[in-house]
Design a protein around this nucleic acid. Structure first.
Lengths: 140, 140
DNA sequence: GTGTATGCAAAGAGTTTGCAGCACT
DNA sequence: AGTGCTGCAAACTCTTTGCATACAC
């Protein structure tokens, strides 16, 4: 995957902050990273990218549909690579782990609910909160 | 409904801010109000309740399960009366209107998805975004 | 009277913006 | 060479907290 090219294809210049941020997402597949996470990861590599720049880059990538922005809890936004396939999330309230799932039956029912109310569906978010298998077995 | 009593039953004193805030929710059934909304509504009645107090009261009511706190978009939290029955939401991205729905098939599938992954379900949020019937007909 | 709740002021966290100089194309 | 991008500083929004006074019980 040619990351600079992918960036240029969005009409953006392939600058160091943009390349490294996008690489980070490819290096952490399935991870949901916040602006702060990214800032720290870059700092660890001794790359000096300031937080406002991280926000700007993330916002541009989200606008370009390279990333998807989620706000699971209200405190902070997290981003993940847009692999093209929609999915919903399972979040562990103990360890913060985020898993993904897709259930066609639920998707169909959602469309039915919307149609029944003459509601033109654009997007949806479904998030299940609870204890992941590991945390659940540790608790009891 | 004796509002002061309901408040005292939570172990809280029936003060003016608490009584008026809870009354507001009863006066606006089905509405989802933010701290700012409430502050303005109270200001209109010439009741001087400062924003931090509104936040404190809302937080206490949410802790007492009188209210439910939602964070549909990340910008601000909104609250609604807890009528005891779970439901999901349809939000119009044009006019901001919030409707509620419940679909047993979706609820069942969610439990199945969680169980299949040995995930101990605590809560979930499902929100459909799109155009409500009115806005949809106005657009085209 | 006692202890809790409020008003006020200020702090905090996450995020956004203005601007001047630097870097990608 | 020119325009877009970044760093820096500061602002902004929503929310929380500390403290002294005021009120509910």
């Amino acid at each position: 995957m040619d990351i600079p090219k992918q960036i240029r294809d969005c009409g953006l210049r392939a600058t160091l902050p943009r390349v490294r941020v996008l690489q980070l997402f490819h290096e952490h597949p399935g991870k949901h990273l916040s602006a702060d996470d990214i800032s720290h990861l870059l700092a660890n590599e001794k790359i000096n990218v300031i937080l406002p720049t991280v926000y700007r880059v993330l916002m541009q990538f989200a606008d370009a549909n390279i990333l998807i922005r989620h706000t699971f809890d209200a405190e902070r936004a997290v981003f993940e690579l847009n692999e093209g396939s929609h999915h919903d999330h399972l979040i562990c309230t103990k360890c913060g782990r985020v898993d993904e799932f897709i259930d066609e039956a639920i998707e169909r029912r959602q469309k039915a609910v919307a149609q029944q109310r003459r509601f033109v569906l654009q997007t949806h978010t479904l998030t299940l909160y609870g204890l992941c298998a590991q945390c659940a077995s540790r608790v009891r």
